[in-house]
């Protein structure tokens, strides 16, 4: 693999978490749910600033795209900008997962 390609495929730990959250949330992937999901599943309190910054970085790498979705309830019917994973994003997640599993193999069950 070439250098730049490796860089754009490579996911930092937080990028990895955010991308997973976006994948899990589907049509509801915007600031609040992403933040909540990370808090629930990864047990980690993160700031909105960090989430937006990461989403923008993922967008620049081509892993997520934004689209306007009509939101209901609280947002008062105004369109919500939600994130959606791209094919490249899905590939990047799988690659990262594989890397993690390989790294964890020597640890056996504990690592999986």
């Amino acid at each position: 693999m070439t250098g730049p390609r490796a860089t754009s495929d490579y996911l930092g730990e937080f990028e990895h978490l955010v991308l997973l959250a976006v994948m899990a949330l589907g049509e509801q992937a915007y600031g609040v749910p992403i933040r909540r999901l990370i808090a629930q599943r990864a047990d980690r309190e993160v700031s909105f600033g960090a989430v937006y910054s990461t989403l923008r970085r993922l967008q620049a790498k081509g892993h997520v795209q934004f689209s306007n979705q009509p939101a209901s309830g609280f947002a008062g019917g105004r369109p919500r900008r939600v994130a959606r994973t791209t094919a490249s994003g899905v590939r990047a997640v799988h690659a990262a997962q594989r890397r993690l599993r390989r790294m964890a193999e020597p640890l056996g069950e504990a690592g999986s």
Partner: peptide, 30 residues
């Protein structure tokens, strides 16, 4: 977007029983 998110979360925290002052501090920090 950011304001809407912070606001939504702040309201959730308030309804979840967080004190007004603590929520205000959280909002400012966010």
């Amino acid at each position: 977007e950011a304001i809407r998110d912070v606001r939504e979360e702040a309201i959730a925290r308030r309804t979840g029983g967080h004190a007004r002052g603590r929520v205000a501090v959280w909002v400012a920090r966010e």
